[in-house]
Design a protein around this nucleic acid. Structure first.
Length: 918
RNA sequence: GCUCGGAUGGUGGAAUAGGUAGACACGCGGGACUUAAAAUCCCGUGGACAGCAAUGUCCGUGCGGGUUCGAUUCCCGCUCCGAGUACCA
């Protein structure tokens, strides 16, 4: 009987659905395990080949954990709000809800064909009002909270109001946009408008006038992680800086906890590193410089207080609040011209010419608090308003940017650390001996920094300060297809909708463009206001809003009273294993952690980190093929001969190339212009060139997963994707190797049959067979735990090679169970042919629990990493006296053991490989 | 620029508390079975040299050094490739 994957897969997919095999219930009597995939945005293009890689890995892991007796939550859903559906709507008038529903259905179908063990009863869709109700709810909670650094957690805003009423801002240690100082009396005299402004300075979800990334092409603002190289990630449109009133989340309040929390996470070091860099903690000093002829002070931040004696000028950002005050009348016109010029430059232009030095002198002088020297104050856009205090002390001798500026404007360069050649470049290294620095002279840099911190505090001119690069997240988008804000306005003051009014549903509209005055699409809607007629906020939430806490919703997806019930949350807690792409390192994975910590602070959830272990699957790249056309002809020359001609490489569809040999007939019909193509062959064949590139239609290297499933089956597809290489690694898809896996499954299938009849022996296994079996179980189990699926597939192949034609039930049955996570359909089919009624996942535990099998494998030596190593017992049992002559005969070894006592010798046939001496 | 990661046959990749480098698979070559094809099975396959042969010798994990009886693995210095970040003071 032949292996008919089509029939088997269709049958079991239907059967699993009917039997509800993958339905999961909260069950405190069993240990839980939560495996989550990053849910996809259901794009019109369907599931692309990169997706299955991670999904297959997580599915294997989920199924394996089930076999080990865990109650596994492995859900799937769709991140369905977002720009593409709306862009499509603008072009076609098709409502995003309609497109989204179609795409979701298509994804479901594609996912189901791969045989995943999702509990679809728990599916969530972020654009569903039942779901986004909880996104809006969390937003209201953030609106209603501030961050206390004393308690190091979020607290209700009412506590802050009570505090203001009692003692104003005195002794307040809270996260805020800008430092404020007022007394209780002053608070009491403030009107509603003013109080709201003050509270927005502290709320975790707040509205503020800020400089934002404005994308004209998309007609909306974007968060920092949505902009790369001055272009929008979606669409690649230019982004400019613009001041606008926006909603923001005070993510920066959590910077320290986001940093600390990472120590406890099993994430790859590289991913942690990316987050650390993004958060960008740096310790330095805040120092006040006096201003000549003026009482006010200029506040700067520096990580190099040791170089303060080398400070020869100051620079403030063009947006700095003291620009006006510092500019003297005789410099005013130049300063204004400069400000005008910088405003016009887009973010991209600014980035493009970081080499260009620009700036203008204000006419004012600061006074160095340590030596009283007067130094000029400049304005330049190389100083950012959003970081530190927006002002720096410039030390051209030891900072390359200050150096470039000083050279350009002919400013003084005073070295204060020995080393480097200042005629060529600044000396930025944090090592060397201090000079020209009064009381620091002779110290090394590190000691000088410490001494300076102390001195600054003693003199009362500043303090030690930690700064973060992490900015608050801009939370509003001028779009239609997102969660509406549960906010309305009365006389220009924002008010929250009460919780019982949620969800605030997105109204139906037919025109998705911004209004002519540049307002978001929701501004077109006539009835977009409260029952009393107060207008709702017209912007909507960004893409990351719906994905920040979705993993809680899977725990209790149909609960309309709470995001998640305390019982369900107490059981499932947090995600044990999260699988997804590394591209979310500075977006989703930061926002989720922030969101989770906030929910933890307000007592809604029990864990303060969302994803305990995280695996980043690599990208699947394309493997393109090329043909070489001789210039000016329609003749194509094979790879090996192309250098004899003047040729041009052309991409050719990989689906008409097999093992780099071109199917010439298929090529001629591929496109009309090649119908009469001529070929120069080598050895009678046309050999194509190849290269690894991005998988894309224009390079004709796209392989559709549906095609693979159709021709080889989902089991082969699953196993082959794992076999391609380490899961974290990016690798090209090459269909040519798939036969190896397909062959393996057919061979395995044939072990069970003699002709069409099941032919399984009840005989006891031989020691050799048992050894092979146990070796395989141990290896595969270890590999799954380590997420090394490519080597576990190899282990199965080795096992089959070693078993020969063994058809014993006692051997095949455990193997079937071990194989089931990888290739569930074929395993299930054979399992039932062996006479089982229940599905493999319901019946196998605990008899075939991999742990049980490993524990019972002690009598047989076991291979490690596929390489046979002799067990310790063997090595120790060899008497040193017997080994001695052999060891001494080996020239290398005899030198090694000279005069020492041999404790242990490891021998392979004909060779000594390890001798342990005492 | 800074930070992190990587480099092993024709190809994808195994093997790192230092111990037979190239498992497994693809491809390729040869053979069996077949009218033929497909499918299946068997043998060979890093390079060079020697031998009729079994086999033997030498060289080989990006480059150059070092530590060690022994290095793909550890250390130092490079080269190239990839990723993140980008005036963060």
């Amino acid at each position: 009987m032949e292996y008919n994957f089509r029939e088997i897969e269709q049958y079991w997919q239907k059967e699993w659905k009917a039997r509800k095999t993958y339905k999961v219930e909260t069950d405190p009597s069993r240990p839980k395990y939560y495996v989550l995939d990053m849910f996809p945005y259901p794009s019109g293009a369907g599931l692309h080949v990169g997706h299955p890689l991670g999904y297959i890995a997580s599915d294997i892991y989920s199924r394996y954990k089930r076999l080990c007796g865990f109650n596994v939550l492995h859900p799937m859903g769709f991140d369905s709000f977002g720009l593409p559906a709306e862009q499509y709507a603008i072009q076609t008038g098709q409502h995003p809800a309609v497109t989204t529903a179609q795409n979701v259905a298509r994804y479901r179908e594609q996912l189901d064909r791969l045989g995943f063990s999702y509990d679809w009863d728990r599916q969530i869709v972020t654009s569903d009002p039942e779901y986004y109700k909880w996104t809006q709810w969390a937003f209201l909670k953030m609106y209603d909270s501030y961050y206390s650094f004393d308690e190091n957690k979020a607290r209700p805003i009412s506590e802050l109001v009570a505090r203001f009423e009692k003692s104003g801002t005195e002794g307040l240690n809270a996260a805020c946009t800008e430092r404020m100082e007022f007394t209780a009396e002053e608070w009491k005299t403030m009107d509603e408008h003013r109080r709201e402004d003050v509270l927005f300075n502290y709320r975790l979800a707040y509205r503020a006038d800020t400089t934002v990334n404005w994308c004209e092409g998309l007609g909306t603002v974007l968060a920092n992680d949505e902009v790369v190289n001055g272009l929008s990630v979606r669409g690649g449109y230019p982004v400019v800086q613009k001041r606008m009133k926006q909603w923001l989340l005070r993510v920066s309040a959590y910077a320290e906890r986001l940093l600390d929390g990472m120590d406890r996470l099993e994430w790859s070091e590289s991913l942690k590193e990316i987050q650390r860099n993004w958060i960008g903690r740096s310790t330095g000093a805040q120092v006040f410089f006096g201003i000549k002829g003026c009482d006010s002070k200029l506040e700067i931040f520096t990580t190099r207080p040791d170089t303060i004696f080398g400070c020869t000028f100051m620079v403030i950002a063009p947006e700095h609040e003291m620009v006006g005050a510092l500019t003297t009348d005789d410099h005013r016109s130049e300063v204004e011209a400069y400000l005008e010029e910088t405003k016009k430059r887009s973010e991209r232009e600014r980035m493009a010419d970081t080499k260009r030095v620009s700036g203008v002198f204000t006419g004012s002088y600061a006074v160095n608090p340590f030596n009283g020297v007067e130094i000029p104050i400049y304005i330049s856009d190389y100083v950012l308003a959003g970081y530190g205090t927006g002002a720096i002390m410039a030390v051209p001798a030891h900072d390359s940017r200050d150096y470039a500026f000083a050279k350009h404007f002919g400013l003084k360069i005073t070295p204060v650390v020995e080393g480097g050649d200042l005629s060529v470049a600044s000396y930025d290294a944090k090592e060397g001996c201090m000079i020209n620095s009064d009381f620091l002279n002779g110290l090394d840099v590190k000691a000088a920094i410490e001494k300076m911190f102390a001195e600054i505090e003693v003199r009362g001119i500043g303090c030690r300060k930690v700064n973060y690069r992490l900015r608050d997240a801009i939370f509003s988008r001028q779009r239609y297809w997102g969660e509406p804000f549960p906010i309305y306005y009365m006389d220009g003051v924002a008010y929250p909708l009460s919780e019982d009014k949620l969800p605030l549903c997105l109204p139906e509209i037919s025109d998705f463009r911004p209004t002519s005055s540049g307002e978001p699409p929701l501004a077109r809607v006539q009835g977009w206001h409260t029952a009393e007629g107060y207008p709702y906020e017209t912007s909507t939430m960004p893409g990351f809003a719906g994905s920040s806490a979705y993993y809680f919703r899977y725990m209790d997806p149909h609960n309309d009273k709470a995001l998640v019930s305390p019982e369900a949350n107490a059981y499932w807690r947090s995600v044990d294993l999260y699988v997804g792409g590394i591209e979310h390192a500075t977006g989703h994975l930061i926002y989720s952690r922030y969101w989770n910590k906030f929910l933890y602070d307000i007592g809604v959830v029990v864990e303060d980190e969302p994803f305990r272990k995280l695996v980043n699957q690599g990208m699947i790249q394309g493997r393109s093929n090329f043909v070489y056309r001789i210039n000016g002809t329609n003749t194509f020359v094979s790879l090996g001969l192309k250098d004899q001609y003047d040729t041009q490489p052309l991409h050719v569809d990989v689906n008409i190339v097999k093992n780099d040999i071109l199917d010439i007939e298929a090529f001629k019909t591929w496109r009309p212009e090649f119908a009469d193509a001529q070929f120069i062959l080598e050895d009678g064949r046309y050999v194509c060139g190849w290269a690894v590139e991005k998988m894309s239609k224009s390079m004709y290297n796209v392989v559709n997963p549906d095609y693979i499933v159709e021709n080889y089956g989902a089991d082969t597809m699953r196993m082959y994707e794992m076999f391609l290489g380490p899961i974290e690694q990016s690798k090209p898809w090459d269909t040519n190797g798939i036969d190896g896996v397909y062959k393996f499954l057919r061979r395995f299938w044939r072990l069970f049959f003699n002709g069409d009849a099941l032919n399984v022996s009840e005989e006891a296994p031989t020691p050799k067979e048992l050894k092979t079996l146990h070796k395989t179980i141990k290896k595969v189990r270890e590999d799954i735990e380590n997420f090394s699926f490519n080597t576990s597939v190899s282990a199965f192949m080795i096992c089959l090679n070693e078993l020969g034609d063994c058809n014993k039930r006692s051997v095949l049955e455990p193997l079937l169970v071990l194989l089931a996570p990888f290739t569930p359909h074929i395993a299930e089919e054979l399992w039932h042919r062996l006479g089982y009624e229940d599905t493999i996942f319901d019946a196998a535990y605990p008899k075939f629990n991999p742990d049980y099998l490993v524990e019972n494998s002690f009598e047989y030596p076991v291979s490690v990493n596929g390489k046979m190593r002799f067990k310790k017992e063997f090595a120790l049992s060899a008497q040193p006296a017997e080994i001695q002559p052999a060891v001494l005969a080996d020239p290398q070894m005899s030198k090694y053991i000279e005069g020492k006592q041999v404790k242990k010798v490891i021998v392979v046939p004909g060779k000594i490989i390890n001798v342990v001496v005492g």
